[in-house]
Amino acid sequence: MGFKLLSKLLVYLTASIMAIASPLAFSVDSSGEYPTVSEIPVGEVRLYQIADGVWSHIATQSFDGAVYPSNGLIVRDGDELLLIDTAWGAKNTAALLAEIEKQIGLPVTRAVSTHFHDDRVGGVDVLRAAGVATYASPSTRRLAEVEGNEIPTHSLEGLSSSGDAVRFGPVELFYPGAAHSTDNLIVYVPSASVLYGGCAIYELSRTSAGNVADADLAEWPTSIERIQQHYPEAQFVIPGHGLPGGLDLLKHTTNVVKAHTNRSVVE
């Protein structure tokens, strides 16, 4: 069995187990497998329904001669939608809004960016022009300005110390501490036991640490421990890039980060 097929099978099995364990909360999309990078042309966006009122959005972007996937989250909030992270750029984010209108038909009224990198804030200006209120932590807003990236308009308070959590509509926002970046936030959907790890969490097929220019490698494993301790009931975990899975993604990420750190020390 090929690795790609095995990865998709694991996603399907995880979703099936969740649907059985929580039949009222989960209505997993039966329309197909989780979209992969090879299936999404740059400039297009796919939506994948995880649970009743919960979707991931998947886009792709060219970077350094390669094409990478990027995940975000959409959560229903009454007759409105909360968006977590842009679709990595203005063109993708405009396509995301169009796809949401086509498939869901509810307005996106608020959006949260989970850290300051372009795959999370690139497209904020498109959201703002569409009347979406954009939010991020003060740290993310400051770092985005320093980096020359787009800056969300509103500040999220109460997320300055490791372990801080605040309720934001249908989700809980959690600051686990520094990891992929010093400002990275985690998003949890309690009604569906869905954990969105953003770039602080890796997919299972990833074996290298990737972009760690703004990471705190020493603190990252401790931050992941905080996530595990705060959300032990999480059933569906979405990484910032690639295929979702279960809580095993947290341990896998820790292993990859520690291996990278150990290699760096040896070198």
Rank of each mutant, 00 (worst) to 15 (best):
G2H: 14
F3Q: 05
F3R: 06
L6W: 09
S7V: 09
L9R: 15
Y12C: 13
Y12A: 12
L13E: 05
T14F: 06
A15C: 14
S16I: 07
M18Q: 15
M18C: 14
A21V: 14
A21D: 15
P23M: 12
F26K: 15
V28M: 15
E33R: 11
V37R: 09
V37W: 14
P41T: 12
V42L: 07
V42Y: 07
V45S: 06
R46S: 09
R46W: 10
L47R: 03
Q49D: 12
D52V: 11
G53Y: 07
V54Q: 03
W55I: 00
A59V: 13
Q61E: 04
S62V: 05
S62T: 07
F63A: 11
D64C: 05
G65A: 09
S70Y: 02
N71R: 01
G72V: 01
I74M: 04
R76C: 05
G78D: 13
E80V: 09
N92W: 00
A95N: 11
L96G: 02
E99V: 13
E99W: 07
I100T: 06
E101R: 13
Q103A: 12
L106E: 06
P107F: 07
T109R: 13
R110M: 10
V112L: 09
S113A: 08
S113E: 03
T114E: 00
D119Y: 03
G122F: 05
V124C: 02
V124E: 03
D125I: 05
L127K: 03
A129P: 03
G131Y: 06
G131E: 08
V132S: 05
V132P: 00
Y135G: 01
A136L: 03
S137K: 08
P138T: 07
P138V: 08
S139G: 12
L143M: 11
E147A: 13
N149G: 11
P152W: 00
T153C: 05
L156E: 03
L159W: 03
S161Y: 11
G163H: 07
D164V: 10
A165K: 15
V166H: 08
F168V: 07
F168C: 04
P170R: 07
V171A: 06
Y175P: 01
P176Y: 01
G177Y: 02
A178H: 09
D183V: 03
L185S: 04
P190M: 08
S191Y: 12
A192I: 07
S193F: 13
L195Y: 04
Y196L: 03
G197K: 02
G197T: 05
C199W: 04
Y202D: 07
L204I: 13
L204S: 10
R206W: 15
T207I: 15
S208V: 12
A209Y: 04
G210L: 05
N211T: 09
N211S: 10
N211Y: 07
A213E: 14
A215T: 06
A215I: 03
L217P: 08
W220C: 05
S223P: 06
S223V: 09
E225R: 13
E225Q: 13
E225V: 13
R226N: 10
Q228M: 13
Q229P: 05
E233W: 10
Q235Y: 10
Q235L: 12
I238V: 09
P239F: 03
H241I: 00
L243T: 14
P244V: 09
G245N: 04
G246H: 11
L247W: 15
T254H: 14
N255A: 12
A259H: 08
H260G: 13
E267K: 13
E267M: 11
